[in-house]
Simulated assay, not measured.
Amino acid sequence: MEYAPLGKSDLLISRIGFGCMSLGDDDAVNETILHRAIDLGINFFDTADLYAKGMNEISVGKALKPNRNKVYIASKVGNQWRADGSGWNWNPRKAYILSQVEGSLQRLQTDYIDLYQLHGGTIDDPIDETIEAFEQLKQQGKIRHYGISSIRPNVIREYIKRSNIVSVMMQYSLLDRRPEETCLSLLQENNLGVLARGAVAQGLLVNKPMKAYLNYAPQQVEQAAAAIHAISNNKRNAAQTAMRYALQHPAVTAAVAGLSTLQQLEEAVRTLETPMLTQEEITMLHGVVAANTYEQHR
């Protein structure tokens, strides 16, 4: 396993992170997968209070508790379930964040969260108030560091200017190159870690039936997947090639992969044993589909 510092923090995290949202509802199965991940060198596990209405945090916390001093736990806050359970509303208010961390700590069976992330964000949020909440939680020792999970350049810029975030989680893949326009270089310049999610684009770059994705038509998605497969062959499978693409950008600290089976886990970890993409391969991939850019939230 390879490790890298997460931005300005003192967290040295595995370059393959475990995205816990993909776990099922069987605690025993989850424990087997999570313990194997630790054996393989993964030390960064990402969940959220939103996932399975908190049950994901419970399952993850139960499995990781015996190894708490060996791992970094990341969670997220900001999405408030409606009373009738029909969905959730966005709530970045200070009082809400301060109240919700208590539930996450209890569910995760821990005294602190290594990385607490705002689970979204808009330019119309009370950003200073949100930052105050995270700073207070740091002072209280309930969290070690904080970051945001956002794809919006205008929001990311504000947090860079006004807060002490150490990381930004964002979607990034061959089929979502929007971060390449400005965000990745900006985050790199400010020594902030990038946690790349969605490297396989919902599986469309690997083996899922073709469909439209973002601004790409199904035919374009199919062309991108074919290109990924074309440069995989014996060196890497398609999923590993897609993850290599995300990992190779110098701004990216780790690829956070949604893993639900031992096979997926083993393949993801072996990505780091595969050869890096050559410049010729990257050029070929870029020639297959034009890079997309943000139309909103610029």
Score class of each variant (00 low, 15 high):
residue 1 M to S: 10
residue 1 M to V: 09
residue 5 P to F: 15
residue 7 G to Y: 08
residue 16 I to P: 02
residue 18 F to V: 00
residue 19 G to H: 00
residue 25 D to M: 13
residue 26 D to P: 04
residue 28 A to R: 14
residue 30 N to A: 10
residue 36 R to K: 15
residue 41 G to S: 10
residue 45 F to Y: 15
residue 46 D to R: 00
residue 50 L to V: 09
residue 52 A to V: 03
residue 53 K to D: 09
residue 53 K to E: 04
residue 56 N to W: 01
residue 58 I to T: 11
residue 60 V to D: 03
residue 60 V to K: 00
residue 64 L to D: 03
residue 66 P to S: 11
residue 68 R to K: 15
residue 69 N to Y: 12
residue 72 Y to T: 01
residue 73 I to T: 08
residue 75 S to Q: 06
residue 76 K to H: 03
residue 81 W to C: 01
residue 84 D to I: 06
residue 87 G to M: 02
residue 91 N to H: 03
residue 93 R to P: 00
residue 93 R to T: 15
residue 96 Y to P: 04
residue 100 Q to V: 02
residue 101 V to L: 15
residue 104 S to W: 04
residue 104 S to A: 12
residue 107 R to A: 10
residue 109 Q to C: 08
residue 113 I to S: 03
residue 114 D to N: 13
residue 117 Q to R: 10
residue 119 H to R: 01
residue 122 T to Q: 13
residue 123 I to N: 08
residue 126 P to A: 12
residue 128 D to P: 00
residue 128 D to F: 08
residue 132 E to T: 06
residue 133 A to E: 08
residue 135 E to W: 10
residue 137 L to N: 05
residue 142 K to L: 14
residue 144 R to M: 13
residue 146 Y to N: 05
residue 149 S to E: 06
residue 149 S to W: 01
residue 152 R to L: 15
residue 152 R to H: 15
residue 161 K to I: 12
residue 163 S to C: 12
residue 164 N to Q: 15
residue 167 S to K: 07
residue 172 Y to W: 08
residue 174 L to M: 12
residue 175 L to H: 03
residue 176 D to Y: 10
residue 179 P to R: 06
residue 181 E to M: 05
residue 182 T to V: 12
residue 188 Q to R: 11
residue 190 N to F: 11
residue 193 G to W: 10
residue 197 R to E: 07
residue 202 Q to E: 14
residue 204 L to M: 10
residue 205 L to M: 02
residue 206 V to E: 04
residue 214 L to W: 12
residue 216 Y to A: 01
residue 217 A to T: 14
residue 219 Q to R: 13
residue 219 Q to D: 15
residue 221 V to M: 00
residue 223 Q to A: 14
residue 224 A to H: 03
residue 225 A to C: 04
residue 229 H to T: 02
residue 231 I to F: 04
residue 232 S to W: 09
residue 235 K to D: 09
residue 240 Q to N: 07
residue 243 M to P: 00
residue 243 M to G: 06
residue 244 R to V: 00
residue 244 R to T: 08
residue 244 R to N: 13
residue 245 Y to L: 05
residue 248 Q to V: 00
residue 250 P to W: 05
residue 251 A to F: 01
residue 254 A to F: 00
residue 256 V to P: 00
residue 259 L to S: 06
residue 259 L to Q: 06
residue 261 T to W: 00
residue 267 E to Y: 03
residue 268 A to Y: 04
residue 268 A to C: 12
residue 283 T to M: 04
residue 284 M to F: 15
residue 286 H to L: 13
residue 290 A to D: 13
residue 291 A to V: 00
residue 292 N to A: 12
residue 294 Y to H: 13
